[in-house]
């Protein structure tokens, strides 16, 4: 009884707090709608409507409403491999990105400010190559003749591009491309997060007898943990949608990389090569659900975002 009373009053207090942060009396309550109007129209038309439409398409069958498109697409022989490819790619990419981004951010953070600025610039500049540009650059980097990294490729006994991008290598290949354009931005962000740790705290650890390594492991990493989680989740969601890299590689290798390598490619293939919008919609909904799940999880459980 006492507990629940307490809880209720806590909730009431919280609500009162919310109102205190609200508006002074007499302020218009309709003005808000006016300010968000354009955005809400866009949200409905371009966020909600397409999702609803895709679900409707995926569920509408010749016999009314059903899941047959989901079953059909699941049974395509390209379906499971596409999701396996993505899973393997995500595993390699997320693991290496997490380790290297945190490591590099910690290392750069120990450097003098001006030096670290230069390093960060080099790390994040490739971000400008996002999209097809990165895929093209790495096409060259992965071609043993003429690549600055040829010595490594030759060391692996690769003679031509198709050796490098053999099917078993593709998850690593795409992970490298994604790391190249994406890691720098995250390093910069982690660096900023590390900078937000008060100097006093690091000094306190130092006085408490902590070595630089211990401080990194016990103080710094725990304090930027939410950023690491944020990076992992966002990267996972983005990675599930992989499209441009396998697409470009497919074009450049004359189809050695299949046009249904990733689920998104599969959806595209179904829509435009098979003219089966319903099936394409079904795969898209699969992907949408993954993205949505991750987002909802992060917003509600992660406590990462300022909602009030």
């Amino acid at each position: 009884m006492a507990v629940s009373d307490e809880r209720i009053s806590a909730r009431r207090r919280r609500r009162a707090g919310g109102q205190r942060g609200g508006l002074p009396a007499g302020t218009s309550r309709t003005a808000g709608y006016f300010f968000v109007a354009i955005y809400v129209v866009l949200l409905l038309a371009l966020g909600v409507a397409p999702a609803v439409y895709a679900i409707a398409l995926a569920l509408s069958t010749s016999g009314g409403v059903g899941v047959s498109h989901f079953v059909d697409t699941f049974n395509f022989f390209e379906f499971l491999p596409a999701f396996e490819h993505i899973a393997e790619f995500e595993g390699i990419w997320l693991a290496s990105q997490t380790v290297f981004v945190v490591l590099l951010a910690l290392m750069v953070h120990t450097l003098k400010r001006r030096v670290s600025t230069a390093f960060r610039l080099i790390f994040y500049l490739p971000g400008a190559m996002a999209g097809s540009a990165s895929a093209i650059i790495w096409l060259f980097m992965f071609t043993p003749s003429g690549s600055p990294f040829a010595f490594i490729l030759h060391g692996l006994h690769y003679q031509v591009l198709s050796n490098t991008v053999q099917p078993s290598n593709l998850p690593i290949v795409f992970a490298i491309m994604a790391f190249f354009t994406g890691a720098g931005g995250w390093i910069v962000i982690m660096y900023g997060a590390l900078n937000n740790i008060p100097d006093e705290l690091i000094e306190a650890a130092e006085i408490d007898g902590s070595s630089a390594l211990q401080t990194a492991v016990r103080i710094k990493i725990p304090l930027i943990r939410k950023w690491i989680v944020y990076m992992l989740v966002l990267s996972f969601a983005a990675g599930s949608q992989l499209f441009v890299e396998p697409q470009i590689l497919g074009v450049a290798t004359n189809g050695q990389v299949p046009a249904q390598w990733s689920p998104n490619q599969l959806a595209y293939y179904l829509a435009f090569q098979q003219d089966s919008f319903n099936n394409a919609a079904a795969v898209s909904v699969d992907l949408l659900v993954i993205g949505l799940l991750v987002a909802v999880l992060l917003v509600w459980r992660g406590r990462l975002f300022e909602v009030e």
Partner: peptide, 20 residues
Amino acid sequence: LPPRERDIAMVFQNYALYPH
């Protein structure tokens, strides 16, 4: 000597408590 070898303890102005 680095701070950890001086056998001192310090109370900081903003306390510097480890938030985690």
